[in-house]
Design a binder for these strands. Structure first.
Lengths: 375, 375
DNA sequence: CAGCGCACGGTAAGCGCTTACGGAAATCCC
DNA sequence: GGGATTTCCGTAAGCGCTTACCGTGCGCTG
C-alpha cells in the first residue's frame, strides 16, 4: 500500500494506528472489542482515538462486513398538507410514525438504525427510489400502500423484505393485525348487542389487503347474522378523513337513507364520517352508530368516544424488525433470499381487540375524562 | 484481481459486466448516467442489470465517493408511553416528526435519505450511539434536547452538525424560529389589548435555548409595559403536558392566587394547563388566559381554541437540511469542519407569527368549525 | 537448555464500487 | 492517405475497514 501522509480532514484508522504506534489490525481489534490486544496496547489505541476524534467509517465497515446495520423503512406520504379543512390529515401519519417507533426501539437494541423514506405513490420514479434505498440497507420494511405486489416481488428478490399489513404468502414476509377476528366480533356486537339491522362498511384503499379482509369479514358476519350490509362503490373510501366526509355528504345529497351503523376501515375515516354527520345535525350514535379501526390516541377524545379495534401498533413494528433481522442474519449463511424454500416466509398475525366506547351506542363512561371538556 | 466466479447470492458489478460483455468501468459509467458509453453498449448493460436484478451497493459506492448521501437525524424520545392519563404525550412527537418530514422532502430532492434515531436522554451510552450514527452519515441534524453543548461541540469536530432550536454561534450551525419577536408581541397583546396585569410564563426545559429566549423576551416586555410577570421554580416545566398539569395543581394546592394570564413554553404544556384548570372548574380565558407556542394541529381544535405562536415547522426542517447540505459539499473541497473560519456557521432564524384565537380572551371565531363539536 | 505452545500483533488480501489514465479503433483534415 | 483528433472502453489503483494467516518473543516443560 502507500504510507498515509498528514492527518487529512477526517482521520482514518491509519492515522490512529500511526499515532498509537500499532498496526491498523490492532486498532480494528480494539474497535470491535476483541480481547486480543493486551490492556496496555488497548489503552494506547483508545487514547489515540479520542485525541484524533476518530469515528470509524460506516461505509467501509459495511463493505468489509457485508453488513450495514441499517434497515430501510418506506411509507406513504399523504399528499398535499395544508389544503383547507382537512389539513389535519397529517395526523394520520401518527399511525406510521408509531409503527416506526416500534421498529426503531427494537432495532437499536441490535445496533441497527433506520433509514426512513416516505414516498408519493404517484411518483413515477418510485421503483428507482426504492432501489436506491435498498442499496443503502440490509433489508426493507414496507408499509402498506407503497408498492404493488409485483413491485414488492421484484425487490424481494434482491433484499429481504417485510411488508406491513400486506398479504401473507406473498414474496415477502408480512406482519399485520388480526383484522378478521375483531371485525367479526364488531359485527356481532353491532347486530346482536345493539340490534342494528342495516349496516355498512366504508372501505379503505381498494387494494389494501387489510381493508379487504376487514370488509369481507364484517359483511360476511353481518349477513350470517341475518342483517343487511351495504356495499358498493358508494362506500369506497381511501382511509382518509376526507373520503369519509365525501361519502356521507354524497349519500345525504342523494337523499339516501343512511344505515343504522357504519363501520369504517380506520379511525381516520370514522373521524370524517362523524364530522359529516354532525354537519347535518345527525347524532352519533343516536341516529347512526359509527366505528373505527386502529385506536389511535385521538379515538378516545372524540365525542362520542370512538368504538374501534385496537391494534398493537408499536408491537407490529417491533415484530417486523425482528422478522427482518432473522432474514438478514439467515441470509448470510445461506442461499439467495427467496430461493431455498427451507422454511416459508412468515406471515405474523398479531391479536387485536374490540374497544367498546360510545360511538357504537354503548353507554358513556361514567367518568368522562375532564380531558374531553377541553377538546 | 481475481476472476469472480458463479453469481453469488447478490450480484455485483462484476457479474453485470461479465454478462454484458463489458468491463466494470463501463457498467459504472452507465449506472452513473455518464454519456460516455454509446447507446448500444448502454442497452446491453441495462439489460444485464435488470436480468440480474442488480442493485449497486450503497456502502461500496459511499466508500469510493466519500459520500454516503445519508444524513442522520437524532431526536429525543419521550420516555414511557402508556402510563396513565397522559399517555397521549406521544402526540408531542408530532412536532419532531413534522420537522423530519420537512427535512426529508428536501433531502430526497438531492438524493439523500434520512437515518433517524430517537434517543433516551438518560441513556448512558448516548455519546457512543450518536457516534455510531455519525459514522453512517455525511452529516447530522440534532433536535433540541438531545445533547449537551459540550457533546455537540465534540461531534461537530468530526462531522458537520446542524442543531434545531439550539443556540446560535455555537460549534454547530443552527436553525430556529424567531421566538423573541413573537413572544414580545404576545406580551403586548396580553397586556395592552387585554389589559392583564399579572402574568406568568411556564418554562420548558431549563437548558433549552428556545425556552430561555421565550421566557426572557416575554418577561422583559411584560415588565417594560408595567405589568407583573411571575417567575421562579414554581413555573418551571419541561415542555410536557404533564408538567403543565403538575404546576397548576401544585399552585392551586398551595392556595396561590393564579395570574390572570399564563404563557406556556409550548402548546403541549398549554394543553396540560388548560386541562388542570378545567379540572378545578376554572374557565379559560374567563378566569385565566392561556397561550401556547408552536401551533400544532390540535391547537385549533382545543376549546377554547388556543392562542399560540405559529412556527413554520416543516420549513425549519427543510432549511436545516439545506444548511447541512451546504456544509457537506463545502467540506469536500476545504478544510476540517470547524477549522477554517472562512465564514462563520449560519444561525438561521425563521419568522413566526402570533395566532390569536380564543384562549387569550379574544372573541371566538364567528364560524366555529363543526369539527370542534366532535372533539 | 533445546523445544514447544501461546499470546500478541503485523501483513496483506479483499469487500464492491468510481475514476484517472492510457490504448485501440474510428473519424477527421488537408 | 498519413497523422491528429476524438470516441469508446478496459486496466488498475484506491476508498477505509475486517480478518485470515503468519511471525515474533515469551514462558514453559522435560
Amino acid at each position: 500500500m502507500d504510507a498515509r501522509t498528514g492527518t487529512g480532514p477526517t482521520p482514518t484508522i491509519y492515522d490512529v494506528a500511526r499515532r498509537a504506534g500499532v498496526s491498523i489490525a490492532s486498532v480494528s481489534r480494539v474497535l470491535n472489542g476483541r480481547d486480543n490486544p493486551r490492556p496496555e496496547t488497548r489503552d494506547r489505541v483508545h487514547k489515540a482515538i479520542s485525541e484524533l476524534g476518530f469515528v470509524p467509517d460506516g461505509a467501509a465497515r459495511a463493505l468489509s462486513n457485508r453488513l450495514k446495520q441499517v434497515v430501510g423503512v418506506v411509507f406513504r406520504r399523504v399528499y398535499g398538507t395544508d389544503d383547507g379543512m382537512f389539513e389535519d390529515e397529517t395526523e394520520s401519519l401518527l399511525f406510521g410514525d408509531q409503527i416506526n417507533r416500534g421498529i426503531e426501539i427494537v432495532a437499536q437494541r441490535r445496533g441497527y438504525d433506520l433509514l426512513v423514506s416516505s414516498v408519493n405513490i404517484d411518483e413515477h420514479t418510485l421503483p428507482n427510489r426504492i432501489l436506491t434505498i435498498a442499496g443503502k440497507c440490509d433489508g426493507l420494511i414496507l408499509h402498506d400502500q407503497v408498492l404493488s405486489p409485483a413491485g414488492i416481488a421484484s425487490i424481494a428478490r434482491t433484499v429481504p423484505v417485510v411488508t406491513l399489513a400486506g398479504a401473507g404468502g406473498g414474496p415477502s414476509a408480512n406482519v399485520r393485525g388480526d383484522s378478521a377476528t375483531s371485525m367479526r366480533e364488531l359485527a356481532r356486537h353491532l347486530v346482536q348487542d345493539h340490534d342494528y339491522r342495516r349496516l355498512a362498511y366504508i372501505a379503505g384503499h381498494a387494494d389494501s389487503p387489510d381493508n379487504i379482509v376487514r370488509g369481507r369479514s364484517f359483511a360476511a358476519e353481518v349477513q350470517a347474522l341475518g342483517a343487511e350490509c351495504l356495499t358498493g362503490p358508494a362506500w369506497q373510501g381511501d382511509y382518509s378523513a376526507g373520503s369519509g366526509v365525501q361519502i356521507i355528504r354524497g349519500l345525504i345529497a342523494l337523499g339516501a337513507t343512511l344505515p343504522r351503523a357504519i363501520a369504517c376501515a380506520n379511525d381516520q375515516t370514522a373521524l370524517g364520517v362523524i364530522y359529516a354527520l354532525a354537519e347535518h345535525g345527525l347524532d352519533v350514535p343516536g341516529d347512526v352508530a359509527v366505528t373505527g379501526f386502529d385506536d389511535l390516541p385521538f379515538a378516545r377524545h372524540l365525542r362520542p368516544q370512538l368504538t374501534t379495534v385496537r391494534q398493537p401498533i408499536q408491537e407490529i413494528g417491533a415484530r417486523a424488525f425482528e422478522v427482518l433481522h432473522d432474514m438478514i442474519t439467515a441470509d448470510s449463511g445461506g442461499s439467495a433470499p427467496t430461493e431455498g424454500a427451507d422454511h416459508p416466509l412468515p406471515d405474523i398475525v398479531l391479536p387485536t381487540r374490540l374497544v367498546r366506547r360510545e360511538s357504537c351506542g354503548c353507554p358513556p363512561d361514567s367518568h368522562p375524562p375532564v380531558w374531553r371538556r377541553i377538546f
